[in-house]
Amino acid sequence: MRHYLVILVLLTFCSCAEKIGIKETITTENAHLVTDFDENDIESAVTYYFASRIRKDDKWKLAIPSSSEWSSRMKYSIDKHNKWNFVEFKNLGLYEGEYGTYVKVFIMIEMDGRRDGGEDDVELKKKNGKWVISKVPI
């Protein structure tokens, strides 16, 4: 009996300690492993946002500014995301573009039984000295 208890404790500890990196592919099978993000690391927030979308929970709201701060472009994008079924995501990295700073991402969605995916950019801006998501891709 004691051996079973030790094994159960070890299995519980191992499953709780399991994490996934911010640049690994996130799918419906592993999105539950993305349990938090570093608010000082914008790439971490981007990964958390999409993992939440894949999990179909509302925790993605924690990774973006309050809705009162959204531009009309951000509102439109969020409305689209609310209608999509996200199935896969990969953070491809932070970069400086011609018009600002972005995180390049790969997203796979499913709509009406069809899957479609591709690369796009998450737009960022500085607020109070920190990067925040200013627009998610559509």
Rank of each mutant, 00 (worst) to 15 (best):
K135S: 10
V6S: 07
V87S: 08
Y102L: 06
F89K: 01
E39S: 12
D58F: 09
A45P: 01
G129C: 06
L92S: 04
V105K: 09
S66C: 08
V87T: 13
T28Y: 07
A31Y: 04
G21N: 08
D79S: 13
R73C: 05
F37Q: 04
H3C: 03
K59M: 15
D36G: 11
P65E: 03
D38G: 05
H32S: 14
S72P: 13
I54P: 04
M1Y: 09
H32Y: 14
T101V: 14
K56R: 06
K104Y: 13
A63N: 09
T27D: 07
S77H: 10
E69A: 05
Y4N: 12
E24H: 07
D79Q: 06
F86D: 04
S66I: 04
E69K: 08
L92M: 15
D121A: 13
F13W: 07
S67M: 03
R55W: 07
Y95W: 02
Y48E: 08
I42C: 11
Y49M: 01
S66M: 14
R114K: 15
G118H: 04
S72D: 14
F50R: 02
K80H: 02
K127T: 01
Y99R: 06
W131Y: 12
V136G: 13
P65W: 08
V6G: 02
E43H: 01
R53N: 01
G118V: 11
Y48T: 09
H3Y: 06
L8A: 14
G100I: 02
D120V: 12
Y95K: 14
R73L: 09
Y49P: 03
E123N: 10
L92I: 07
A51N: 10
K127E: 11
S72F: 08
K90F: 13
P65C: 01
D41Q: 01
R2G: 00
K61A: 15
V122R: 03
V9A: 12
E24R: 06
V103F: 05
M74C: 00
G113S: 12
I138K: 14
